[in-house]
Amino acid sequence: MSELLREAGLIARKDLLIEWRSRVAVNQIAPLGMLVLVVFAFALDANQSLLDRASAGLFWVAVLFAGIITVQRAFTLESEHGIRDALRLSGIRPAAMFLGKLAAISIQLFVLEVVLLFGVVAMYDATVEEPLLAVVTAGTGTLAFSAVGCIYGAVSLGLRARETLLPLLLIPVVAPVLLAGTRALERALGVSTQAGWNWVGLLVVVSAIYTAIGLAVFGPLLEDG
């Protein structure tokens, strides 16, 4: 178990180091997420009440766009220069690769979500009335999205048209994550009276299910992709 975690840490550290060196998330992905918020702010500005009600959903739409690019980049790195073969030869367990990728993508997306949440507050004039619920929603939603993303990222590894196929594969599967995340965040922003923690529970269940699936199938996907 400790060896599995060591290997997962190695993968996660490597992915985060690549991001630190390349600054793609900072210079390209985060601005894209903010741009999505800005565009909707312009589009709906005339109707402040609609903007209030839509803010949680728009937050997750921005996360979706940024998340797809983050997942795509994380797996494109492994498909270049024969790196996938090198990883297979390295002896790192596929489960460790999955956990490492999951951790790295989750950390990047969570930081991005914090930035986007500030964007929602600033641009949409939203108020975070339940900060704990907002943070836990972002955390569990990120984990669920990243787990699904890692599975479909591995599916797309060997595909020639993966840039266009990954969103097509990913968006329908993460729809429940976006729905639950939106409902829970609406409660955290005080625009809904629904039980936000119930939706968080759903996000936890989705995270657990897809993490379990990812641990089981990542090896075969890496071999066959």
Partner: peptide, 26 residues
């Protein structure tokens, strides 16, 4: 070890980063 036609290196990492990662991975 299999060295093919490709470099099997991460472009964004430094030389030392790459060597450290792959040796630890092994």
């Amino acid at each position: 070890a299999l060295l093919g036609h490709t470099s099997q290196l991460y472009d964004d990492l430094t030389v030392v980063d790459n060597v450290q990662f792959w040796s630890r991975a092994s």
